[in-house]
Simulated assay, not measured.
Amino acid sequence: MKPISISIGLYKIPSRHVQENAIARFTAYEWIIVRMKFSNGIEGIGWTYTQGRGGSAIYHLISDYWAKELLSDSDLDPLTLNKRVWSLSYSYGLEGLSRLAYSAIDIALWDALAKAHDIPLYEMLGGPKSPKVKAYRSAIDLNFTIEELVEDIKKFKNQGFKAFKIKIGKPNFEEDIERIKAVKDVIGNYPLMVDVNRGWTFEETIKKGKILYDLGVYWLEEPIEADLLDQYKMLREKLDIPIAAGESLYNGFEQTKLITDKCVDIVQLDVLRSGGVTEWMKYAKLAESLGLPMAPHFAEEISVQVLSAVKNGIFLEHLPGSNLNDSGVLKSSLRFEDGYAIPPDKPGHGIEFDWEKLSKYQVLWTEVK
């Protein structure tokens, strides 16, 4: 398909509540949204994000450099782009910000390609005609009181959710234990995951991980710094509780090592941080070959598409208050039913933005032809 124009917008959307985990506190997300128009009349839409900082760097990388280069291509599809980004980012590297930028364009291309074939993206990727994937309630909720936490868990249990995740990492570990017990009193035998957001040391994790296992926690997420992959592997060997991680890796070598060295029990690569649909599907296939499940971080609007297309997907993270899905800027999105996420059955990824409502959050915008 021949691209004829690319528009890029940077939008800063406030969170629906203050976001706090063991190492950070923030109040907004930045969304970089790409619209690609093609000579056949089709428009593909893609996006990526930051947690409130760095979005302008991604915006300018696409608008000032990549867009002009990509418009010079007579034919552009996800696989062609996958090869092109190496040359596009040669002088500054295809990691970090470049991967986030790549993700937005890759998703736009997959959206356009599936629309051209008049089928949903999950079907284009090899998924069934009417998929649904298990979802769990998640939140950046370390600043919730126990009462607020319990009420929120009850709300999602009443909506049909059968798996839940909370943040831990309080200065006093006894507070974490108290929060876990309070939530388990509400959910019973349903899975409860906990997320430390890289807040502990290796030694702390060994000690606390054993206690969490005895409490019946389903998985322990990101207990130590994300790039300490050898330590993650040792944690997996020393602890009985399953270890989950991968969301904070922006480097292709590290993402590959995470899987091939079996550093974790559950792979949580973020679709928007790992390089979009093309790269995430590659890692998912690699993980499948080694018997590792995928439970992607965040980005539920596109994660539901890739999870619907792989055999080793186990959970979608539903993160209300932080996602696009309940931000008020979408006309069409995924839906949830009895603890499952169901992707739109429209051609492409099915995510439709309300551009008028989105415009009030606009920080930067440009169109390149």
Score class of each variant (00 low, 15 high):
3 P>L: 08
3 P>I: 02
11 Y>M: 06
11 Y>I: 01
12 K>Y: 03
18 V>H: 11
18 V>S: 14
19 Q>K: 10
19 Q>N: 12
25 R>T: 14
27 T>E: 15
31 W>T: 01
33 I>A: 12
38 F>N: 11
41 G>P: 13
46 G>D: 07
50 T>N: 10
53 R>K: 15
63 S>G: 07
66 W>T: 01
68 K>W: 08
72 S>C: 07
72 S>M: 11
73 D>Y: 15
73 D>S: 12
78 P>T: 05
79 L>P: 00
79 L>A: 09
79 L>W: 11
80 T>M: 12
82 N>Y: 14
83 K>I: 01
83 K>D: 07
83 K>Y: 09
87 S>M: 09
91 S>V: 04
92 Y>M: 07
92 Y>S: 07
93 G>C: 08
94 L>R: 14
95 E>P: 00
97 L>E: 04
97 L>V: 14
97 L>T: 14
98 S>W: 02
99 R>Y: 01
101 A>L: 04
102 Y>Q: 14
102 Y>W: 12
103 S>N: 10
108 A>C: 11
112 A>F: 05
114 A>I: 02
114 A>E: 04
116 A>C: 05
120 P>G: 05
121 L>I: 00
125 L>F: 12
126 G>T: 02
127 G>T: 03
127 G>A: 06
129 K>I: 07
131 P>Y: 07
132 K>M: 10
132 K>T: 01
134 K>F: 11
139 A>H: 14
140 I>R: 02
140 I>F: 13
147 E>P: 00
147 E>T: 11
150 V>H: 07
158 N>Q: 15
163 A>W: 10
163 A>K: 09
164 F>G: 07
166 I>V: 08
170 K>H: 15
172 N>L: 13
174 E>G: 01
174 E>L: 13
176 D>A: 08
180 I>E: 11
181 K>Y: 01
182 A>L: 05
185 D>G: 04
185 D>W: 03
188 G>Y: 09
189 N>G: 13
190 Y>F: 15
191 P>Y: 05
201 T>Y: 08
210 K>W: 00
212 L>C: 10
214 D>T: 03
220 L>Q: 06
229 L>M: 04
230 D>C: 01
230 D>E: 14
232 Y>D: 03
235 L>P: 08
236 R>L: 04
236 R>A: 05
236 R>D: 07
237 E>W: 01
240 D>Q: 11
244 A>K: 06
249 L>V: 05
259 I>V: 12
261 D>H: 13
261 D>V: 00
261 D>I: 00
262 K>T: 02
265 D>W: 11
266 I>L: 13
268 Q>L: 04
269 L>Q: 10
273 R>K: 15
279 E>F: 08
287 A>R: 13
288 E>S: 14
289 S>Y: 10
289 S>K: 12
290 L>Y: 13
297 H>Q: 12
298 F>Y: 15
300 E>Y: 02
307 L>G: 09
309 A>V: 03
312 N>Q: 06
314 I>C: 11
318 H>M: 00
319 L>T: 02
319 L>S: 02
320 P>L: 04
326 D>F: 01
331 K>V: 00
333 S>A: 14
334 L>K: 02
334 L>E: 00
337 E>Q: 10
338 D>W: 02
341 A>T: 00
342 I>N: 06
352 E>N: 06
354 D>A: 06
356 E>V: 08
357 K>Q: 13
358 L>D: 08
362 Q>H: 03
363 V>S: 08
363 V>T: 01
363 V>H: 08
364 L>T: 01
365 W>S: 15
369 K>C: 06
369 K>P: 01
